[in-house]
């Protein structure tokens, strides 16, 4: 028997057995799942270090500011894009998007490749386990089980075996969410799109 998807809403006409299975799955997620902890301080320090070294080296070799900024933005996009995708930290998407906007300002032709990259990262968010974990954790902490779910669970003495991680039948790969992918794409793509639109608008206003 496949375990109920704990992140889905229980159907109103669900049978008692389904309700119990659903409640049990949610309880497991609530107790076993924790949001991934990304050491953001380390990420920031590492990025700063890499950017610093890169800037010093390129400036020392008499490269233009454009040449210095370009790889810097790329480093930021990759680093924060990965943190966003794998670490499930929303604000990292903001940082990656902002860096992508900077890149578009430098190289307007980079928009399409950047959007392609954003789409790939968004697809990555669809399968990355971090998001399912953080969703489960958040749902369990901010949306308490209903009285019926609690009652259903209480009827069976549920012992959570943490060593088994995700319990039997509850597989994270089941929790692909298309809406998450679309939303992630918007978070990553909004900044470069806005930057590109601004450049086009300014240009259009001047050419009229």
């Amino acid at each position: 028997m496949t375990a109920a998807d704990p992140l889905a809403v229980l159907r109103p006409d669900a049978s008692p057995a389904e309700a119990e299975s659903h409640a049990e799955s949610r309880m497991r997620l609530a107790t076993a799942a924790g949001p991934p902890r990304v050491p953001m301080r380390r990420v920031l320090l590492t990025c700063a270090l890499v950017l610093g070294v890169e800037a010093v080296v390129l400036l020392a070799t008499d490269r233009s500011l454009h040449d210095v900024l370009l790889p810097g933005y790329l480093v930021l996009i990759v680093a924060f894009g990965l943190v966003f995708c794998l670490g499930a930290v929303t604000v990292a998407g903001f940082a990656a998007g902002a860096a992508a906007a900077g890149l578009v300002v430098l190289e307007p032709d980079a928009l399409l490749p950047l959007l392609g990259g954003a789409a790939l990262l968004a697809l990555g968010c669809g399968v990355a386990p971090g998001w399912a974990r953080v969703e489960a954790w958040q749902a369990a902490h901010s949306r308490p089980l209903t009285a019926e779910e609690e009652a259903a669970v209480a009827q069976r003495a549920l012992s959570v075996d943490r060593s088994r991680g995700w319990s039997r039948g509850v597989r994270l790969r089941n929790y692909w969410r298309t809406d998450r992918v679309l939303a992630a794409f918007l978070v990553l793509a909004f900044h470069p799109l806005l930057a590109a639109f601004s450049l086009w608008f300014i240009d259009w206003m001047q050419r009229r």
């Binding site: 929303t90 749902a139 998450r180 939303a183 918007l186 978070v187 909004f190």
Partner: peptide
């Protein structure tokens, strides 16, 4: 962007 980000953080993806 703030609305977009906030909707994402709340995991209300459908709203984003």
């Amino acid at each position: 962007y703030l609305s977009l980000l906030a909707g994402f953080k709340r995991r209300t993806y459908g709203l984003v």
